[in-house]
Amino acid sequence: MTDFTPFQSLIGGVLIGISAIALMELHGRIAGMTGILSGVIPPITQDWPWRAAFLAGAIIGPLGYILAGNTVAFAVPVSMLALIIGGLIVGIGVTYSAGCTSGHGVCGMARLSPRSIVATVVFMIAAFATVFVIRHVIGG
C-alpha cells in the first residue's frame, strides 16, 4: 500500500508545470525528459550544455530537498530483472514515440498536440493493462 497524497501530489504537479512554463519562457524548450536526456546520450547534440544543466538540477533538486530534512517515500516493489527489462522497453519505446509522460503527457497535452494526446492515451492504457496482467493475471 502507498498513502493517498492528493495534496503533495497536486503541489508536485504544479511545480512540474511551473518548470515546464519556465523552460519555455526562458529557453523555448519542451520540458520532456526523453528529449532532454536523449541529447546528452552519444551522439551528443550541439546544444548539450543547457540539457546537462537541467539534468543536474533535476537530480540535485531532490537531493537537496531530502538533505534539508524532508522525507520522500520510495519503494521498488519489483525485481532487479523487472527493472532491467522495463528500462530497456521504456528506452526503446520513448525513442520511437519521441516523448514520455513529461513531454507528451504534460507539455504536449497542454498544447493540445494531436500526437501527444494519442501518445498519452496509448501509454496510459498500456501501463494500466500491463500492471493488471502482471498483478492479477500472472500474479493472481
Binding site: G86, V90, V94, A126
Partner: peptide, 17 residues
C-alpha cells in the same frame, strides 16, 4: 512506441521523468 513505453512503465514503475 507509446505502447511499448507504457508496457515498460507498468513493468518497472519508472518513467524517464
Amino acid at each position: 512506441g507509446s505502447g511499448l513505453f507504457g508496457i515498460g512503465w507498468g513493468i518497472a514503475g519508472f518513467c524517464p521523468g
